[in-house]
Every structure is written in structure tokens, then in C-alpha cells.
Amino acid sequence: MKKGTKLILNAGFIMALLTACNPQIKKDLTVSGLDPQNFVTEDGSTSLFTIKNTNGMEVCITNFGGRIVSVMVPNKNGTLVDVVHGFDSISDYISKPSDFGAAIGRYANRINKGIIVIDGDTIQLPTNNFGHCLHGGPQGWQYQIYEGKQLNDTTLTMTMHSPDGDQKFPGAVTATVTYTLTNDNALDICYDATTDKKTVINMTNHSYFNLSGNPAKSITDHILYVNADNYTPVDSTYMTTGEIATVKNTPMDFTTPKPIGQDINNFDFIQLKNGNGYDHNWVLNTNGDIKQLAAKLTSPESGISLEVYTNEPGIQVYSGNFLDGTLSGKKGIVYNQRTAICLETQHYPDTPNKPSWPTAFLEPEQTYHSECIFKFTVEK
């Protein structure tokens, strides 16, 4: 959870979602140990969905925020381990504000002072992070209910019907997130959206990864590669300055794989001080080619590697700097600082106010499409 994030939920909405689980529904536990009953509210508005492949890999997703709750992958010993942070129940997701695993919308990352200008009209969005609009505002899609539909054992869709004026964003938007688990242990996430009025959109997945399989362990030993020669610097409020800067000869250089912790505390480098570690967007060299590797993360302990592929121009690397031990997740494990890392494929932060950057505007005659592939492998 990033510092300064606030959650404001309608009291009636909270009461409805916190209603006791329906006692008539009884299902077996998932491979990850989750009880699907704990994700079902009395009104039936939320559920836990499970997709699996032929290798035994399992991904559990709730339609509350389109959140990935667990990802079970084999380690170098062939043992299935869970590699993402999350909670055991829907009540925890409601009562413990976080972005864990969420399908973020309408606009992932920050918009400067919550202001966008569309065809000469200035629109003031709600602000919820250092005076900026973060992840779609205080009631962004991660705190709303998607319409979930299981297509088959390996494929799930989540649909969001967002009305005109949702968090002050213009246009009625219909967005669909499709999760497909392939037999080569890749989770392919596709985002598609249309609008009836010109708007901005920038979706991503906000999973917190710990590839060791031990969520209490720091990820500073994980080896990270990012296929990017440049990044977008930020000020002390985490807002992009508009500059695109080289990573060469700086702690931001991951063009040669290195441990996340190697330079993370070098606060003499102002960008690491501003981010309290890594919380920056990298400008990918991939030019939208999803076949090119955008980033790779490896846990030396488990041997698990995560390869990231995307058609997006950027990737936000957030090293869990503001996890502070106040949240206990699945199995009651405390989430301390830097026990997870996020790899959020995206358009750059505040793109609507930076005309020279790849556009995030969506017209009524257009279809937004974004794709991210998280592919898991094992290095023995």
C-alpha cells in the first residue's frame, strides 16, 4: 500500500459487503488454502474464482476489485508455493485498504493534482495521494465489484460498467479484464475498454510478488532485470516531473540484472529518497512488442522466475516501501517493508498532462487494449 493512500467507502456499501458469508455455500479449499465461502457475501455480489492449468498451477481471483488473491507455482523442488500477497477473506479486503492484486482503473498511477483537460474542459478528479489522483481515486475500480464470468477451467473475465462521472471521470466506460492461464505457466491478462465520451484510461494489475514463497521474507535478494534505458523521475510527492532520464550510471539501471537491495537504500541519489526506494516508471525499450521481454524477476531461494511481457510503453516498479507491518495477510502473516514487489505495466504516470508522451485518451470510436503476460519459470 503506497503512502498517503486513503479509502472512502459508502457506509451502506461496507455493511452489505461485510455481511456474514452465506452458510448454505460450502466448497473445498483451493490449492492455496483459501476457503471460497469466505469470499461470498449474503447478497452474492462477490465470489472467489479459480483457474488452473495442466501443470497444477492455480490462480485465485475475486471480483471485488478484480483482485488476484493467490498464485500457486512450482519452485525448484517441485513444491507449489503462493507468490503474491493478499487476504483470506472478502471482509479483510474491505476493512484493510490496499491495492493487493487489483485490476486498477480508470487510471493507474498518478494524475497531477487530479486535473485533466479534455477538449478545453478542465475536470477536477478526487485527490487521494499527496494532492494527486492515485489509481482512479479513493473509490477506484479496485474498491468496486466487477462482474465475474468463468469461461472455462483456464479463463475468467471481469467486466466493469463504469458510469459517466465515476470518480468524476467523463464517459460511460465498459471495461473487460480477461485472465487466461496457459499450459506454459503464463498468466495472460488482457484489458479492453470502450467509452461513449472522450476520456482517459490506463489499466494495470497491482499484484505484490514475493517469489521466495515466503511472504515474511524480504524481496531485496530478488534479482531484477528491466529492459529500459530510461525512466521518468519524480518529485517528493511521487509525481513525474516530465523528464525522461537515462538509467546509465545510476541506481535505476537494471539493464544488467542485479539484486533489488543492491542500491535501494542509496538515498544520496535523490530519486531513491523521493521514492523511499523504488517507486518509479521505466520507459521500456520494447516499443509495444509483447514478444520482447520487458522485465524479469528471480528469487535465488526458490528458483522461481517471473518474466513480464507487455504492449505497454512503461512499467512501474514498486518495491513495497510502505508496507510497514500493520497489515496481516493470508495465514495471518505480517507484511513488513519490502516483502513484495509490484511490476505494473502501464502508460506513464500523469500522461494526460504530458502531451509528448504516448497518449492515454480514449475516443468513443476507439477500443482500448492493453496486455500483460506474467510467465513463471524455474531456474534450478
Rank of each mutant, 00 (worst) to 15 (best):
I115N: 10
E363P: 12
D221C: 12
T220E: 14
S89C: 07
D229P: 02
P36N: 11
L17T: 05
I61A: 01
E307P: 02
T339W: 03
T377D: 13
I51Q: 12
I264N: 10
E344T: 03
F374D: 10
H222Y: 09
T345C: 13
K273W: 06
I14Y: 05
P233T: 06
N281A: 15
G140E: 07
V83P: 07
I104D: 04
W141Q: 14
T5F: 13
N249T: 07
K3Q: 11
E58D: 10
Q37G: 15
A172G: 13
Y335S: 02
L29T: 12
N281K: 09
A193M: 10
T195P: 04
H206P: 07
K197I: 04
D35K: 13
A20Y: 04
T240N: 02
A216H: 01
Q292G: 10
V177I: 15
N281D: 12
K2T: 15
V283M: 00
A340T: 05
L18F: 00
P352V: 09
G314L: 09
A102M: 09
Y238T: 11
D279M: 05
K217C: 14
I189S: 03
C372Q: 14
G314Y: 08
N266S: 09
T41Q: 05
K2R: 12
G131E: 07
G277Q: 10
I260Y: 02
K248I: 12
E312V: 08
I145C: 05
D192W: 00
L7V: 15
V317A: 00
A340M: 03
V31C: 07
D119I: 03
V117C: 10
V84Y: 04
T178A: 07
T367V: 14
Q262A: 15
Y348H: 10
Y318I: 09
V247G: 00
H85V: 10
G56L: 12
L297H: 01
V31P: 00
K27S: 13
E42M: 15
G303M: 08
T182F: 11
K96T: 12
G78V: 08
V247M: 05
C60K: 01
P259D: 05
G303K: 05
I219H: 01
Y179S: 12
Q142G: 03
G277S: 00
L211E: 07
A103F: 12
N129K: 08
I244N: 03
N276E: 11
F322Q: 05
N128C: 04
L9K: 01
Q142I: 13
P251G: 07
G261I: 12
T241Y: 10
P358I: 11
T54M: 13
N311Q: 06
I61C: 02
D253N: 15
G56P: 13
K375E: 06
T5V: 12
P364Y: 00
T5W: 11
H280P: 02
H347G: 09
V247D: 09
I118N: 00
P170K: 08
T367N: 11
T199C: 02
K273M: 02
I123G: 04
T326F: 01
K76M: 12
T377G: 14
D99Y: 14
A216K: 15
G12M: 09
C372G: 06
G33E: 02
Y335I: 11
T204P: 06
T154F: 06
N63T: 03
F267D: 11
T250P: 01
S70H: 08
E312D: 08
T54Q: 15
G140S: 09
K375I: 07
